[in-house]
Amino acid sequence: MLELPLVKGDPFHHVMEAILDLSDVAHVVCTTRGLNLLAVDTKHLAIVSLLFPAEDFKGYTCDEYISIGIPIRDLVNAIRCGDDKDTITLKVGEENFGTITLSFVSPEKNTVDYEFRLVDAKLERFRLPDRHFLRSKYQGSVKMPSVEFRRICKCLSNFGDEYGVISVTDEDLTYFAKGTDGDVYVEYKQQEEDTTIFKIDVREPVRLAFNPKYLNTFAKVFTLSGQVKLFLSKTHPLMVECKIGQKGRIRCFVAPKVEP
């Protein structure tokens, strides 16, 4: 049995909204310890993963291992229909396995129930990297304000939706996008005096090419947290992470473009 309390505008809802146009299904695994959501776009160029420990999720109840595929569009449409003041609960029960119920209860105790058929997610085969992998395969990381990151992603994506580059040295971070009529460069210098807001940490310079469209899709999600952390590798996908609550986190991976 699973009961997942949701609120319009919470991280779960935000992630679902963000991936609405990228993927049809979110693969959700729930245990007594918490929730793990994974969604991959249809071209397999971007993955988003949401980890939400039970202690950060007020009212979370799960007494067994549950692995389900949630139809994203149905869920988002239902949440959009709800009122901001509604208490929303996603339920998967033993008696109605194969379906999920989304219950909305208003402050006046009026209720609306949506029932969806679960879908096959087939995402178990994606195994995302752990901390050890990130330390060994990623040459650098950059911490920056999420609002600033979102602004850059929007700028890059507006300018050139196909080809962008992130470069980092121990002195600066550079974003670049190629548009049809020109290019855009954004440069951040490492500040000596305040490294709490912006901090570069690199073992060696890294240059990574990617499609800015995908990064822009996820950038809004990261504003749920004040800071984002970018992990950069010469050989592996770009990873962006933000912390949610005490121990929760959102990660996205964007597949690299490789120069011939």
């Binding site: 991959v40 071209k43 397999h44 160029l45 971007a46 993955i47 085969r125 994606f126 195994r127 995302l128 990297p129 080809y163 090419a209 499609n211 592996h236 996908p237 991976f253 597949a255 690299p256 473009k257 490789v258 120069e259 011939p260």
Partner: peptide, 14 residues
């Protein structure tokens, strides 16, 4: 022009 790689080759567990 650069070649777009997919995520399967990085995170695909057999």
């Amino acid at each position: 022009s650069p070649t777009q790689k997919t995520l399967d080759r990085f995170f695909h567990s057999s």
